[in-house]
Design a binder for these strands. Structure first.
Lengths: 105, 105
DNA sequence: TCCTAATATCGTAATATTACGATATTAGGA
DNA sequence: TCCTAATATCGTAATATTACGATATTAGGA
């Protein structure tokens, strides 16, 4: 039982987590997630302004995060507010970015 | 100061972490990392056997993990043993895979 | 030195991701 | 209903990733 640790049979169990990470693994999306960890709630125009990139680009990144279940939306009139949907992700990003200043050049 | 939370100026700080995640975000590589978390040390042939895929494919995934600083190597004669190089990654993978059984369908 | 086992790299076709302008959708107000 | 602001989706060119056979490298033994 302990021999087949890298077993192909159980490979499918890694598809979901790998997709989660893939959705996270882009500087802009990481920045958005980090921002939402601090700001809690934010609409698209605000992000677009801060990030200084075309609206369609920002929106596409948001859709990618959304379909991975990382963020969720709340409509408020014309605005759509984004919030973090997944505490696990916040936890991971904390670990990922947290140690940055200690062990880096 | 608290307004520019998604600031483009600081975007570069996310490049490194995003690359780390990108290297991790593939089912085979996640499986390898998980395996190394348990087995501690493993050569390429063993992984190739377990994963049941061509040697060159396994080797390429290993190189990707290595150049991201996720794994390291130790030569032992003809064999090359791989080990985890990054505790932070192990921590992240634990969180990523740990909760799987609780909150999932 | 020659042979062979273990691993890494090259070449490349198929596929996925990215960025972004153009266009569509959606909702509130006049 | 018409107008407009906010956001999402489409289309697509440029680029990156993936898989894997073929070949190269590296090290130990005869």
């Amino acid at each position: 039982m302990e021999t087949k640790i890298f077993d192909m049979k159980n490979m499918k169990q890694y598809d979901e987590p790998a997709n989660l990470l893939k959705a996270l693994s882009h500087p802009v999306r990481l920045c958005i997630v980090r921002g939402l960890m601090r700001k809690k709630k934010c609409n698209v125009s605000f992000m677009q302004e801060c990030l200084d990139m075309p609206q369609s680009t920002v929106s596409q990144h948001l859709q990618k995060l959304r379909s991975a279940g990382i963020v969720a939306t709340e409509r408020n009139g014309l605005e759509v507010n984004y919030i973090l949907a997944n505490e696990r992700i916040a936890h991971i990003v904390t670990i990922l970015l947290g140690e940055e200043d200690c062990e880096h050049e």
